[in-house]
Every structure is written in structure tokens, then in C-alpha cells.
Design a protein around this nucleic acid. Structure first.
Lengths: 208, 208
DNA sequence: TGATTAAGTTAACGGTGGTAACATTGTTAA
DNA sequence: TTAACAATGTTACCACCGTTAACTTAATCA
């Protein structure tokens, strides 16, 4: 902490990480330049290369931070009542994206994560994903959800919240004001279905 | 077509657009540089600025092309049977993303479309969206879907297919081989719901 | 203490988006 | 027909970027 204004910086890696995180938060990833970061940190640009292989690795590290925070938020959801747990975890997910749109875009923009390039990133992403999956598995175990492959329901749930998140932060959902309500309604649809009563009465899976 | 090798190029705007489209298709938007494009077109870089205000405007024009093709594909879906129309339009949507992952990412990466910057882009996006909305409205009119705000169901459907598309092209859906089946199953869940029979028998919307 | 290593430095390369000032061509009106 | 004008090219340049190479300083450890 006590910057001695000497040759060695002391904690460059973490300070760069933090500054980059702040920058990305309110300006997006395109605004991040290693040279600019270095200047703000009072250090030469190549110094950063001692701590990050390249620009993309830095961005990947930031994305990891994002996934970690997302995971923590998801873990904080009350799991006692299956329906509320499922709805709430969706709302928390979308809420994270709305709170940190630029970070969220970095995490899922497909710009950093061709999967396999940065193992730590894959791991962090999987960690967040796992929380969602566990919630679903639990709901199914107590008989709240239909018997079906967990992977199927997880894919559906993740797709829905991810799509909702992305469309929301890009301003593509009309009711900007009523969005929390909208989100809850959308999530409910995945649980309750959207067919009219006359179509869904009893089990009419085979209709041909 | 007959390049006269003269000072004026003749059709630079369209040729640049096409070349950029091809480039983005198999290399992604980061691979697009105005200078490189100009070189390939046998023209100086600033010449392109006669036809595109800046790099972002070019990308926006490409995204417009993407939305137009997406719209055409969606329009080709058979609308006669509500359930199949709804499922198929979802499959076509996801199929487009899988066929053109880089173009899709450009269209929805949030990189070009802060909405309002490029009106033509907003318009093209809305055009594609409208097809989905119409399909849903029609299904509801014939009594296939629950009575509810069309905007709600549209948001749900769009979120679901968009999320599915994005997760699919980023390789986040496990069963890469069984993905068409997976997609159909996921889409069905939004229609039929995911609650177990004991939870969904009759109308138990109020459970407290 | 002296050698090794970690973590900085300056200098430089090639590439980028973008602007300014100028040149050429096609078009249009006197 | 030609003179003016607008459209569409050109070269020269700017500031910035990511990145590497070669060198310097400081900390660590045998």
C-alpha cells in the first residue's frame, strides 16, 4: 500500500487489474488500452506484460472476476422454496447483468472465451453455471419439476436468463420501467408453460 | 462489373460491403480493418470514408444485412400449425446463429447497436423481431396460447431463442451432437412448462 | 556478498482509425 | 461545347495501439 515511488511498483498486477475493472465497468472493453492503463498507473506500458501475457489475458482475468461475483450473488439466493428459488435465481442473474452491463458483455461477448484458451475463465464460468444447475437439480429432486434430463432444463433456464439479460441491457425489451415485473413473468412462463387451458388440459403430448 | 482500372472505382460501396461481409463471416468483426479492406479492393484507405462515415458505420451496415437475412429466414417458416410454427421459428432462429456465428455476434454483441446511433440498424432489427411477434400474436389469436400480453410472450420467446443461440455458438451447451434435439426440447418447455404433474394439475396459480 | 531472478526501463516496429489538402473524373447547366 | 461543380478518388500525415527486444535496477537467496 505504501507506494515508495521507487523502481519497483510493488503490486502492479492487482492494481492494474482493479483499474482495468473500474474502466471496463463504466466504459466497456473497447476503452481498455494497455498503454493508457500503464500511464494511469505511472508505469511504462511493457511493464504490464510482466503480469499479463497480452491484452486478451487481462480481459480474461477481468471476466473471471465477473464470473466470481456472479457466482456469489447466485449462491446468496434462498433455496428453501423451489419455485421462489428458481424465479429468484433468474432475477438475480438478470440483475447482475443490469448492474454490470459492460462486464457482462465481456463475459459473454464471445470475444474472450473461445473456450479452452483461458482455462481459468472456463472454470469460473462453469462455477457460476453450476449454481444454476444445482438449483434446478434440487427442485427436481423434491418433485417440483417434471422428470427430464437436468441438462435440458438447465439449458432452457440458462438460455432464458441469458437472453433476458442481454436483451435487457441492450435496451431491446420495451417496458424499461416495468422490467422487473416483465422478468418475473417471463421466468414464470418457463415453469408454468404458455399454452392455453384448452391446449394443455391433462397430458396431450401425442396429438397426432 | 467491367473494372476499367481507372481513377473512379465504380461501385466501391457495394464491393466494400460484400468483401467486409465475407471477411466477417469467417474471421469475425475484429478481423475487419478499413486499411486491409482498401488494400484488397485496390484502393486507398481514405476512399472508404467517402462511403462509410467510420468503421462502426460499416459494421452497422453489415449487421443490417444480417438482420435482413434473418428476417427472410423467419418469414419462410410455415405458419399453418401454431405449435410447429412456434417451434420452427425458434429452430430457424438458432439455426441462423449457428450458420453465421460471427455475423450473429456482430448483430447482438452490443458493440454496434446502442440503439439510436444507427437508425437503419434499429429498423432492421425491429423487422426481424416483428416476424417473431406476429407468429406469437397469431398463435394467441387462434387460442393456442394463454391470454396474456403479447409483449410478455414475445420477450420470453425471444430471450429463449437468443440465449439458446448465443450459448450454442459459444460452445456452452454440452451435447454438441444432439443440439437440434436439445433446442427443440428447450423450446417445447416454454410452451408446455416444466412443472411436474402434481404441481401443475389444474390451475394452482395461487399457492399461498 | 555475490549470483540469480523478478520487475521495471527506453526504443522501436508494424498496424490502426481518422483527417487534411489535393487530384481526377463524371455531370450538369450556360 | 465548355466551364463550373460535385463526387470520388489520391498522398501525406497524426496520434494511438499492441507487442517485442535489449537493457537496468532492485530484491532474494545460496
Amino acid at each position: 500500500m505504501t507506494r515508495t515511488a521507487s523502481y519497483h511498483h510493488g503490486d502492479l498486477r492487482q492494481e492494474a487489474h482493479q483499474l482495468a475493472l473500474d474502466t471496463i465497468r463504466d466504459q466497456g472493453d473497447t476503452a481498455i488500452s494497455l498503454r493508457a492503463l500503464a500511464k494511469q498507473l505511472g508505469v511504462s506500458a511493457p511493464a504490464l506484460y510482466r503480469h499479463f501475457a497480452d491484452r486478451e489475458s487481462l480481459l480474461a482475468a477481468l471476466a473471471v472476476s465477473g464470473f466470481e461475483e456472479l457466482r456469489e450473488r447466485l449462491l446468496a439466493v434462498d433455496q428453501r422454496v423451489p419455485r421462489r428459488a428458481l424465479i429468484d435465481i433468474g432475477l438475480v442473474y438478470v440483475g447482475f447483468a443490469q448492474d454490470e452491463p459492460n462486464l457482462y458483455r465481456l463475459m459473454f461477448g464471445g470475444r474472450v472465451l473461445p473456450k479452452g484458451v483461458h482455462p481459468k475463465l472456463d472454470e469460473a464460468g462453469h462455477g457460476a453455471f453450476k449454481v444454476l444447475e444445482n438449483t434446478i437439480a434440487r427442485a427436481q429432486q423434491v418433485g417440483y419439476l417434471k422428470p427430464m434430463p437436468v441438462a435440458l432444463m438447465t439449458a432452457a433456464a440458462w438460455s432464458l436468463v441469458h437472453g433476458l439479460a442481454q436483451l435487457s441491457i441492450d435496451g431491446h425489451l420495451p417496458g424499461a420501467k416495468a422490467e422487473p415485473l416483465m422478468a418475473e413473468g417471463v421466468l414464470s412462463l418457463l415453469l408454468d408453460g404458455s399454452l392455453s387451458d384448452s391446449e394443455s388440459t391433462s397430458h396431450k403430448e401425442i396429438e397426432q
